[in-house]
């Protein structure tokens, strides 16, 4: 993150040296883009905090650790599609599930849908892409996640 700040500061400094006017314009554009998404962003953060509260880690763990792998796979994909968990929460959670005996393919379905499919972020996404393309994109993401999960299951010998 520090690297990103340094790079941004550097880019900004170069920009100011080359043309203060253009830099002002750039900041104005950045600000207007930000203020457009800010309300939707806040809305999603509020929703996500509610969902996370009623879907705590141990609940996710108890559903993904079940003996029936196929059932666990479906539940993992469903849970992953609802939430957008930041990586620093999702991967440690997946790691602890792994040590408790969860299958790799279940974890794969969970982490990939967490990253690619976001029902909660549809309000934001549809402002850019429109509802139809947003839905298609998320469905495609779900399909890719399932494909990844199956191949993972095959490679790790969990399909039998």
């Amino acid at each position: 993150m520090i690297v990103v700040y340094c790079l941004t500061a550097l880019a900004l400094a170069i920009s100011v040296l080359k043309s203060p006017d253009k830099t002002k314009l750039a900041l104005a554009i950045g600000w207007s883009r930000f203020s457009k998404v800010a309300p939707t962003f806040l809305q999603i953060v509020c929703l996500a905090s509610v969902v996370l509260t009623f879907m705590p880690n141990d609940m996710i763990a108890s559903h993904l650790g079940t003996q029936n792998r196929w059932m666990a796979l479906v539940i993992a994909a469903a849970l992953g599609s609802i939430t957008i968990l930041p990586g620093f929460i999702a991967f440690p959670l997946a790691g602890s599930l792994l040590s408790k005996g969860a299958a790799y393919m279940v974890l794969s379905a969970f982490t990939t849908t967490v990253m690619m499919v976001g029902i909660l972020t549809i309000p934001l996404e549809k402002r850019y892409f429109g509802l139809k393309v947003t839905l298609i994109r998320n469905l495609v993401g779900l399909g890719i996640a399932l494909a990844v999960a199956l191949v993972t299951g095959w490679i790790f010998g969990e399909l039998s």
Binding site: L7, T8, A26, A28, I29, G30, V45, S49, V50
Partner: peptide
């Protein structure tokens, strides 16, 4: 809920200034 909320906000507040400044610079330059 409040803890989750502030956690999310903190994560994004760190990123937003850089991201949108860079987007603005990209558009202009």
């Amino acid at each position: 809920m409040g803890l989750h909320w502030s956690e999310f906000i903190k994560g994004m507040v760190k990123v937003f200034p850089c991201a949108f400044v860079l987007i603005g610079l990209f558009e202009v330059w």
